[in-house]
Design a protein around this nucleic acid. Structure first.
Length: 275
DNA sequence: ACGCGGCCCTGGATGC
DNA sequence: TGCATCCAGGGCCGCG
């Protein structure tokens, strides 16, 4: 599921389905930890922290979801396979690790087969929480601009794709959108970051924003389907230009898309369109 | 200090 | 059909 557009889609969907901020938003009546340890232990204290309270807001910072309560914040990362669903009481599935029971026999369930996700509690100042405080700027914020990226890349030894995926550089860009943004920008993923020109940095920044914005728009369609069991995808995957397309013809020039591994992650590019 | 490989897990796809 | 292998949208840790 989870790069920035998917987390943003989950956030919007949950806000809508749970009527967050409206009078009919449900109270939490009970909390169940079906498995204590995912990436980190889910705190036992969540029971007393959450029962009897309402979710005041659900926001996103980087790939983290932040559930705000009057006494603190539930901080969540979906890892590779995490998802939330709203279901009827008793509709428990394999890999449901954490349940927030709601009024009217509804349940908000966190499901995560690979258990790379995070569910934890932060009493106050979530922005200075250790998982949050060192994160880079939001990609759609004006702080993430060509000046910033050009300056930041000058002394970097690694390739531009790995650097773009580093959450200290800019948040929310994962393996798919890094490949896609670099394709649109015409920059090969294996190029050393410090050799990317100022003009190319401008393109990389601009195309990163475009790709993420388009994916958010496309991901909007998952609102109804995450309510059901799946929570899988919107329709943004139909807009991929290079990701997962090794050997296929480039949509612009018809040359074969190539694949290579950078920082241990599959990377895709067009040898003709990207320099 | 930085950059990289390995690792944390399960499950689906692929190959023999 | 069954079994083995590889791969997956992320991030942390320890090593050189």
């Amino acid at each position: 599921m989870p790069e920035l557009p998917e987390v943003e889609t989950v956030k919007r969907g949950l806000n809508e389905v749970l009527h967050i901020g409206k009078r009919k938003s449900p109270k939490i009546t009970k909390v169940t930890r079906r498995r204590e340890n995912i990436r980190e232990v889910i705190p036992k204290s969540l029971e007393k922290d959450l029962v009897g309270r309402k979710i005041l807001s659900i926001t996103r910072r980087a790939k983290y979801l932040i559930f705000e309560f009057e006494n603190g914040f539930l901080l969540n990362h979906l890892g590779m396979t995490g998802c939330w669903r709203v279901c009827e009481k008793g509709d428990v599935k394999n890999h449901d690790h954490f349940l927030m029971h709601l009024e009217k026999n509804k349940v908000l369930a966190y499901n995560d087969p690979r258990r790379f996700g995070l569910v934890t509690w932060c009493k106050a100042n979530v922005e200075s929480h250790k998982k949050i405080k060192d994160l880079g700027p939001e990609p759609l914020d004006n702080v993430f601009n060509a000046d910033y990226l050009f300056a930041k890349t000058r002394k970097v030894k690694t390739n531009i794709k790995t650097f773009l995926m580093n959450q200290k550089t800019v948040v929310g860009v994962g393996n798919i959108y890094a490949s896609e943004a670099l394709f649109s920008a015409g920059v090969r993923p294996q190029r050393l970051a410090h050799k990317v020109t100022r003009a190319e940095c401008e393109k990389v920044v601009a195309e990163t924003k475009v790709v993420l914005e388009n994916a958010i728009k496309a991901g909007g369609s998952t609102i109804s389907d995450f309510k059901q069991a799946g929570g899988e995808s919107g329709y943004f995957q139909h807009q991929f230009h290079v990701y997962g397309k090794k050997g296929e013809a480039c949509c612009k020039c018809k040359k074969q898309i190539k694949q290579l591994v950078l920082g241990g992650r599959s990377s895709f590019y067009c040898p003709q369109c990207q320099k």
